[in-house]
Design a protein around this nucleic acid. Structure first.
Lengths: 208, 208
DNA sequence: ACATGTGAACTGCTTCACAGCG
DNA sequence: CGCTGTGAAGCAGTTCACATGT
């Protein structure tokens, strides 16, 4: 791939794909950058620029073929293959994630959840087996998950992350409200509710 | 307030506060921009620039007073007062949020959850009453919540948002994986898991 | 005629580098 | 001397505007 693509661009591609799927299901054949822009809260120039990083798959004077563009975006985003996911921490957030249908819909297969709590081990979390955290390393060697989702308390998050990184997993989705340190070849995305709330608090406080 | 502050800046302030609280609890008195930067994965110049938007509360040659800076950040972020929150959608994500202690810790008080499902109405969700969504407008008029958290399915999200906006609530935290349209004076923060996952998928696919 | 694709201009965030002050 | 505070420089992402292709 030629250039390094900005994070914000990837997020928008993800948004475009969502609209395209909506269009696809309604049987529409073509869409313009302008239509895509309006739905995504951005501009047509931005849409075209975003897509131009990966090639030129529109027809001048016409727009983009909905199924073709959707297919190309899935390809770019790596949604062609099935990604295997493990959840670490079988608490409430873990449970909410385990039942989230968005995972499946987009080709993410949850293999198992892990916890240290003996009462939870051996049970099922929304149909997903809860395993003993002590067998993490053994399981990873066998199942080769691609992504680990961390839903453990903030105090344990860094320790658990280090352990996960050591198993060779390269992608982590972190729900602990803490900044994590990881090697450069490991991608960590953090969903920090506390931060979002404080952003709202700031917005409410500093209004004109 | 003089300038418009970037979203990224506010997020970092939020992160700084978290480290400061850690330092505070360990009884440390001063901290340098360099120490703050290392914990937050940024640079000392960035830290100083971020803080400089709001005044100059460091001591040259020494650093910042931990309790003083923490206090100022709480003030800037609007964490001095108690914000009242309602949750709309009493599903799994709603439940996970209802029990999340981070809310309380930072002065966010959850008043109630709302749902249309009769089986849920009247029950408690982690100690929080689940009320009938039809009484939303009446309740908002009386309780005056500041923030609404949306944990409803994507298809309903825009409709529910419109309804919430009409009640006069100006801050919304959205968990539905969809782009929402709101008036300019309403702040909407979206936590989109699907987008984060696709970001990871992209990272895994396009590695050197 | 119409909508794409893209170099060029612009905007704004980040980094640099150093003067200023304790 | 050490670390802050901040203009200036640098850089990245966004917007503009138009040539290009259908």
């Amino acid at each position: 791939m030629a250039k390094r693509i900005a994070d914000s661009t990837v997020r928008r591609l993800s948004a475009y794909l969502r609209f395209l799927e909506d269009f696809e299901s309604r049987g529409l054949e073509t869409i313009s950058s302008e239509e895509l822009a309006q739905r995504g809260g951005t501009t047509s120039a931005q849409v075209r620029k975003d897509l131009s990083f990966f090639g030129s798959f529109g027809k001048r004077g016409l727009g983009y073929s909905v199924p073709e563009l959707a297919g190309r975006l899935r390809e770019i985003l790596g949604l062609g293959k099935e990604w295997k996911v493990i959840i670490i921490g079988a608490g409430k957030i873990g449970a909410a994630l385990a039942q989230y249908r968005g995972f499946r819909q987009r080709g993410f297969l949850i293999l198992a959840a892990y916890d240290a709590n003996e009462e939870k081990i051996g049970r099922k979390l929304e149909g997903i087996p809860v395993r003993d955290i002590t067998q993490l390393e053994r399981d990873v060697r066998q199942d080769r998950p691609d992504i680990a989702v961390l839903t453990v308390p903030a105090e344990e998050a860094q320790r658990v992350l280090d352990r996960v990184v050591k198993t060779g997993i390269k992608a982590i989705l972190n729900f602990a409200p803490t900044q994590l340190q990881a090697p450069a070849d490991v991608t960590v995305k953090t969903v920090n509710m506390a931060m979002e709330l404080e952003g709202l608090s700031y917005a409410l406080t500093n209004r004109d």
